[in-house]
Amino acid sequence: MDPEIAEWLQRALLTIGYQHRERMYADVEAVLQLFQNFLVPKAETYTHDNGRSQLLLSLIGTVPIVYQSATYNIPVAFWLPTSYPSVAPIVFVTPTALMLVKPGKYVDVSGRCYHPYLAYWNNRSDSNLVGLISVMQGVFSQEPPVYAKSNVSSQQQQQQQSSPTMGSYPSPTTSLRPAPPILNYSPRSGANTSTTQPSGANPQLNRSSSSSAAAFGPSAHPLTPQQAQLHTKLQTTLLEYKRASSREMDTLVTVNKQLNDAENSTKAEIESLRDLHTKIQYNITTLTRCIEQLNAKIEQIQAWPEEPVDEIICGSSVVHNQLFELVAEEIAIEDTIYLLGKALSQDKVELNAYMKHLRNLSREQFMKKALIKKVKVQLGHVE
């Protein structure tokens, strides 16, 4: 690929904000290498069915087909969504001013192309631009999607045949930089495309080396009334078949989208359940480890020897036991004095009774403290 085009393509992918730029660049590069004289990249504004406009990368030009042993070019445009390759490209047939779209099994009146390859794009791991163009070539070779306008004058036909361009394509409303010019298609060597016409085709199908696009039209011979009636019936039948096929295709596309959405939702739910299972397993492991530690601690405590309660609470000698009892009694007296004072403040006891009991308790407390001091001196605890 030309270095200038490669640099422009890298900058375009980065500016537009494609999610998978490496895959996009690889697929576009493969297309440009195979169809370097037919398709060129452009950055243009695409308007979706809901009216939303978006800057997208497109491949605009022609794709060569072989129809009744002659090679022709079909003008097309491939629009690449920003989430490509997760989303299929958008394909349109873009007829020139001297052409009209020929609705068929895979092309509607607006030129939008439909095909199972596009409908089941996400279900195929090998879906890519080169494969899509190859499929479109096979479809267009069986049923050409354009034909010549019947009211075009011979002068306009001559101007079209002598025109060196590939047809008028709308210039991009927004572009990152001017895209490389569209190159003219030259027939393959050895293909007699300038003198051979497909049977029943318009003389405009006769292409010279500078012709730009293929046009398919009705036969130049006049039809008999029976042939015209048959032709009308065939057109009506084909139109009804096309409408039925379009409805079926729309239904299949809708069902396919619903299935894909359900599959994605199921995958997300499965992934969420896996994460929850992992967390639960971690919590179970942690809880099991803690239970094992608690059981080990319980076994360790149960293995400890039993200590006599009297030896733990009582002192080691008679004197120590006496000191223990004296301190307990002295603290009890102090608590009793506190409660008597609280009862006096709340008028629950008379002053005379309070003073009487306070004297008795204070005298007893003094005796306890003196005895405690004496015991401590005996034990060697001198203050």
Rank of each mutant, 00 (worst) to 15 (best):
R23P: 04
L326A: 15
V130A: 03
T251C: 02
S153L: 03
T236P: 02
L9S: 07
H357D: 12
Y338A: 15
K368T: 09
L9W: 08
I270N: 12
N352C: 06
Q281E: 15
S194C: 06
V318T: 07
V139M: 04
T236M: 07
P305E: 13
H20K: 11
Q54N: 03
Q300M: 08
I90L: 08
P164Q: 04
S189F: 10
K356R: 10
I90K: 10
N128E: 02
Q155V: 08
D108Y: 01
Q258Y: 04
N283K: 13
F140Y: 05
L294I: 12
A328Q: 13
A6W: 09
L34H: 12
S110I: 02
M166Y: 02
S189V: 13
A6C: 05
P89G: 05
M249Q: 11
N151I: 00
L129R: 04
L252Q: 10
E271T: 14
S362V: 06
E306Q: 13
V318M: 03
P103V: 05
V309T: 10
S212Q: 10
K279D: 14
I182N: 09
E29N: 11
V152N: 03
K368I: 05
A43R: 08
V146I: 11
N283Y: 15
Q204D: 13
Q68R: 07
W79I: 04
Q161W: 08
K242F: 14
K348F: 06
P41T: 02
G138L: 07
Y185K: 03
M1A: 12
Q33I: 04
G341D: 08
Y18R: 00
V93P: 01
L230I: 04
S134E: 05
L326F: 13
A332S: 09
S162Q: 09
Q160C: 08
Q302F: 08
A213R: 06
D310F: 07
W121K: 02
G217Q: 00
L230K: 11
R188Y: 11
T236A: 12
L98T: 10
Y120L: 06
Q226C: 01
R207V: 05
N264Q: 11
L340T: 01
N192F: 13
G341P: 02
N206C: 05
K149D: 09
R23N: 06
T15N: 11
L205I: 00
Y169S: 01
T165L: 02
E240R: 07
F35M: 00
R243T: 11
I5F: 09
V66F: 01
T173Q: 15
V130L: 07
F35L: 03
A268L: 09
Y18F: 14
N264F: 09
T286F: 11
T71G: 05
E292G: 12
R21P: 04
S125G: 10
K233R: 15
S134L: 04
L59G: 05
E7R: 12
T196W: 03
V130Q: 04
